[in-house]
Structure formats: structure tokens, C-alpha cells
Write a protein that binds this DNA or RNA. Structure first.
Length: 397
RNA sequence: GGGUAGGUGGCAGAGUGGUCAAUUGCACCUGGCUGUAAACCAGGCGACUUCGGUCUACGGGGGUUCGAAUCCCUCCCUGCCCA
């Protein structure tokens, strides 16, 4: 029981600890405060609940008194994306980078404490040291690894097998990321399991250059039963910022099979409670009810308990009673009353063709009445509510 | 440097002169069902349209043909084998 506080730190939401759990445990037990970091790409994307897993882990370390660094990977952003196979991503300008970093910090502030007096999270930028390396220094860094080691990385391995191209510069990403550890002289790095290789490269460099042990903690990626990552690439983004009702609904749209995992990774609900829920599920409880609790917990975390209650009420009225949410966004009446123009004008459809389809598929309601005729002009007046699908509402101003 | 195989819709991956706006899977959208935005089932999924059609699309450019994603030339990009 003596290691209970360490359980949350070292076991909950942790995939693997390198070199071993015990080694890190011993180090922490000594009472030593470690310096640790997370590297993020300043891509300007919205933080979604997948991101929160690792941020929460950082927050736990911060609370335990360890020094946390949030590293903005602005150097990476400057030279563009390594694996962008199709679109050659335009390198971001320094203004965009700064803006994205700021936006990231604002969102992350819901989890990490940047303003703490005694132990704030520090922000660093890796361009500060990476941009200064000379070609000679880079070659010396590269000499720490062999081509075979690089190719061992599963991503490279599979692409080799599939005959897909691997650009030479992709080998430099582990080097760059690894050098971050050296430049900041950290004791520990935390990241998703997809970052294992890069983080371990940092371990190697830290040992060779600074003669220092660097621990690595990987956290699991939130994934559904098919192993599909929950994240922006798969389209199922659940942004933590934005409206509470969207966050609530987003959580409700998670598959039943990731319920317990999400509880463990994304909430503070006690492990015992989660075990109990598992039992309840096995006993035939409707997963929906447990998912509602999950949604409440998460909305409370990033908004407030009141927001969670309100979001739940909205959810119930929209989906259970097929009613309307409380606050419907209003828009001025469109200039054209032709049905297709109305939907496009109110941004409820991307094109007239799409709008037409929505009408034909009975997806459009005006004041709760299905409207399928897209040829006859509508007569909208102030206060009318147009609904597309189940969850898109607009009220005429 | 030589040889060879390829580049198709958000992704994966068929198609190899007309019936191709292009099979299929994933993602996405709509409907049904379930007091879940889960699961499952059905439909849809380039744009415009006076709903008859019209236009733009299969790496870029040019050509052959009544007609090309499909054939030819050329340029760009990639895999594999050899050196």
C-alpha cells in the first residue's frame, strides 16, 4: 500500500516504462525530483481526448512536484512534415508557429498548470538548439545509430515490406527528437506508444553524450476494438475545447468497447469504481448509462459540473426525445428562399447537390416537420428552426 | 548508369478504348432501430441543372480516335532488380 501514490503515476494509463518500472520506481522512491518533458507538434490542431491521456500523465507528475517541460517542436514545423506522403505540407511561418503554440498552450492549460508559483510547467522550443547544429555535429549525432537500428522501427519495416518509399530525411526525426533530450538534459520523457522509437533514440543519446539515464514512459493510444486510433486522422475528433454539448456528444459516440479504457485513461475515477462498472456491464447494464457517466466526468473535467448537467439534458432531449437543444445558433434569414440555397447559405450543406440529397433523404426538418420538396420556395420567418440530420440546428434571426 | 513495374476519388485498392462520375473496403452523410451520436440494417457519397441533362475529373503537358483512366509521345515522381 505504501506505493499507492506511485500506482497512479506508474501504472494507471501507462503502457511501458523503459528501461523498467522498477528502475524508475527506485529513482522516485528516493524522493528525487525529476525533469521530464513532452514534445508536441505545433500543427494548430484542436486538442482532442486522445491527447489528454499523455497530458494528464504529465499533470500527475507536476502535482507530485516534478519539473515538467512542454516542448514545442517548432523546428519540425519549420521544415515540414516528414511522413506527408501525399501533400507536401508547406512549412509553417514563424507567425503561424507562434500562434499554434499559443493555442496549444491555452487548450493544454485545462490540464497542465502553467501559472503555478512554485512549480509551473515550462515551455521550450526545440528550434532554439536544433537550428544551431552544424552539419558536422549532425553527422556525429547520426554516427550513434546504425542503418539497421533505424530500419528496425516497425513503421519503416512495414513500409520496406510494402515497397513504400522512405525518405532519407525521415531518419533524422529520431535524431532531432533524441537530441532534445540531450539539450534539455532531462530525466524522463513521456509520449504515446507511437513515439517509442524516437523517445528511445533520446535515451541512447542521453547516455552516450551526457552519460545519464533517461527514462521513457509510453502511454497507450486511445483506440477502439478494431485498433483504430481515436484521433484526427480517423475523423473521430472529440475536441476538449468548444461547446460542452459537443464534447458530451462526442464521448457518447465512442464505441461501447472503449468505455472502460477511456475511464481509466481520461478520468480521475478510481480504479475500484472502474472495476465495479466492468462488473455492472457484465451483469447486463446498458452501456449507454455508463457512457453517460463518462461523458459527464469528462465534461466536468474540462468545463464544469453545471455544464455537464446541461449537456446531458440537451443530449437527452435531442436524442432520446428527439427534441431540440437549448441554445440553437441563430443566423440571419438567407437572401434566397430556394430550399437548396437556404441550406447552403446557412452552411448546413456544402453544395447544392448535397443539400438536394439531404432533402431527398428526409434529412431536413423545418419546425419539426420533414421537408422533402426541394423545389418549392420556403417561407422562413424569424424564429423558425431548421434542422439537418439529428444534430444540426439553426434558428432564423 | 542499365533493366523493369507503377502513379486512379479523403485513404486503401479495382478497372486497361465506348455500357466509367469510375467495382469494392474504410472514413463520412441521411434514414430506420435501440430511451447511446455505440452496435446493427438500408440508402447516399464530384459540381451545376429549366431535372431532360450539362460540365470538370483517373501524376503534368501534348497526340491518335467518332470516342481515352484505358493507346502513342514527352516531362515529373516512386518501388523493385542489376551495376
Amino acid at each position: 500500500m505504501a506505493e499507492d501514490p506511485l500506482f497512479e503515476l506508474l501504472d494507471r494509463g501507462v503502457d511501458t516504462i523503459y528501461p523498467s518500472r522498477k528502475a524508475l520506481m527506485d529513482r522516485l522512491s528516493s524522493g528525487e525530483k525529476l525533469t521530464l518533458y513532452l514534445g508536441v507538434d505545433p500543427t494548430g490542431a484542436l486538442l482532442h481526448i486522445g491527447h489528454t491521456v499523455v497530458l494528464r500523465k504529465l499533470a500527475h507528475f507536476q502535482k507530485a512536484g516534478h519539473k515538467v517541460i512542454l516542448l514545442i517542436g517548432d523546428f519540425t514545423g519549420r521544415i515540414g512534415d516528414p511522413t506527408g506522403k501525399d501533400k507536401t505540407r508547406v512549412p509553417l511561418t514563424s507567425e503561424q508557429l507562434a500562434e499554434n503554440a499559443k493555442s496549444y498552450q491555452e487548450q493544454a492549460a485545462k490540464i497542465l498548470d502553467f501559472d503555478s508559483k512554485e512549480n509551473p510547467v515550462e515551455i521550450k522550443h526545440n528550434a532554439d538548439w536544433l537550428a544551431k547544429l552544424t552539419f558536422e555535429e549532425i553527422i556525429k549525432l547520426a554516427a550513434n545509430f546504425t542503418a539497421q537500428q533505424m530500419l528496425e522501427r516497425d513503421m519503416f519495416e512495414s513500409r520496406m515490406k510494402e515497397g513504400k518509399p522512405i525518405s532519407l530525411h525521415e531518419f533524422f526525426y529520431p535524431l532531432m527528437q533524441g537530441y532534445d533530450s540531450v539539450a534539455m538534459n532531462v530525466d524522463l520523457e513521456i509520449g504515446g506508444t507511437d513515439q517509442t522509437f524516437n523517445m528511445l533514440a533520446g535515451r541512447t543519446l542521453q547516455r552516450k553524450i551526457n552519460d545519464k539515464e533517461k527514462f521513457v514512459i509510453t502511454v497507450p493510444l486511445l483506440a477502439d476494438s478494431n485498433g483504430v486510433k481515436i484521433g484526427k486522422t480517423t475523423g473521430n475528433v472529440i475536441a476538449i475545447s468548444g461547446k460542452p454539448s459537443n464534447l458530451y456528444g462526442g464521448v457518447m459516440s465512442l464505441g461501447d468497447d472503449v468505455l472502460l479504457q477511456t475511464f481509466e485513461l481520461c478520468t480521475d475515477v478510481a480504479i475500484e469504481d472502474i472495476a465495479e462498472m466492468k462488473q455492472q456491464l457484465e451483469d447486463g447494464m446498458n452501456p449507454r448509462d455508463i457512457k453517460m457517466r463518462l461523458a459527464r466526468e469528462i465534461v466536468t473535467l474540462y468545463h464544469s459540473a453545471e455544464d455537464a448537467v446541461a449537456a446531458e439534458e440537451d443530449f437527452k432531449s435531442v436524442f432520446a426525445d428527439k427534441g431540440r437543444p437549448k441554445d440553437i445558433p441563430t443566423q440571419p434569414a438567407p437572401t434566397s428562399m430556394a430550399p437548396l440555397d437556404v441550406l447552403v447559405g446557412l452552411k448546413l450543406a456544402k453544395s447544392k447537390s448535397e443539400a438536394k440529397r439531404l432533402f431527398e433523404q428526409n434529412g431536413v426538418r423545418i419546425n419539426d416537420e420533414i421537408v422533402a420538396d426541394w423545389k418549392r420556395d420556403l417561407s422562413l420567418t424569424s424564429g423558425d428552426v431548421i434542422q439537418v440530420g439529428k444534430r444540426k440546428f439553426v434558428q432564423i434571426q
